Simulated assay, not measured.
Amino acid sequence: MKPLRPILAALALSLASPAAAQPADDATVVATVNGEAITLGEMRALKAGMGPQAAALPDAALWDMILDQITRQTAVAQAGEGNLTPRDEALLALQRRSLLATIALEAVAEPEPTEEELRAAYDALWGSAGEVTEYSAQHILVETEEAAQAVAAEIEGGKDFGQVAEERSTDSSGPGGGDLGWFTLDMMVAPFAEAVGALEKGEVSAPVESQFGWHVIRLNESRLKEAPAFEEVRDQMAQQVRRERVEAEVQRITGEAEVERTEGLSPDLLGAE
Rank of each mutant, 00 (worst) to 15 (best):
E247T: 14
K201D: 14
A238E: 08
A227D: 10
V233F: 03
Q240W: 09
A193I: 11
E221Q: 06
K201E: 13
R234Y: 04
F230G: 09
F212Q: 13
Q236N: 14
G202Y: 01
V233M: 01
P207V: 13
V204W: 02
V233K: 07
E226H: 04
V216G: 05
V208C: 08
W214S: 01
E247G: 12
L199W: 04
L219C: 01
Q239M: 15
S222I: 13
R245V: 11
A238R: 01
E221I: 12
R243F: 13
V208E: 00
R242K: 08
R223Y: 11
V216D: 06
P228V: 12
K225F: 15
H215C: 04
R243E: 14
E203C: 01
Q211V: 07
V246Q: 05
A198I: 08
Q236T: 15
K201C: 03
E209D: 08
A206L: 08
D235V: 15
L219A: 00
S222A: 10
S205N: 02
P207Y: 06
E200D: 05
E226D: 10
S205D: 02
V233G: 09
A195V: 00
N220M: 06
S222C: 11
V241H: 11
S222H: 14
W214H: 09
L224Q: 15
R243K: 14
H215S: 06
G202E: 03
G202N: 00
E194C: 11
K201H: 07
A206N: 06
D235C: 09
E221S: 11
E226G: 01
A195S: 08
L219G: 04
P207D: 03
N220I: 09
M237R: 07
F230D: 12
R243H: 10
Q239E: 15
N220L: 15
Q236V: 14
R234K: 06
R234E: 04
S210R: 02
V241C: 10
D235G: 10
Q211P: 12
V208H: 09
A238W: 03
E194R: 13
A238H: 07
S222N: 13
P207W: 05
A238D: 09
R245H: 12
E203V: 06
I217S: 12
V241R: 04
H215L: 10
D235I: 12
E194K: 13
R223N: 06
S210N: 03
D235N: 15
G197R: 04
R242G: 09
I217Q: 11
A229Q: 05
G213K: 05
D235W: 05
L224K: 14
R234G: 00
V246Y: 01
E247P: 12
E200T: 02
V246G: 04
A238G: 00
F212V: 00
F230V: 02
K201Y: 00
M237I: 04
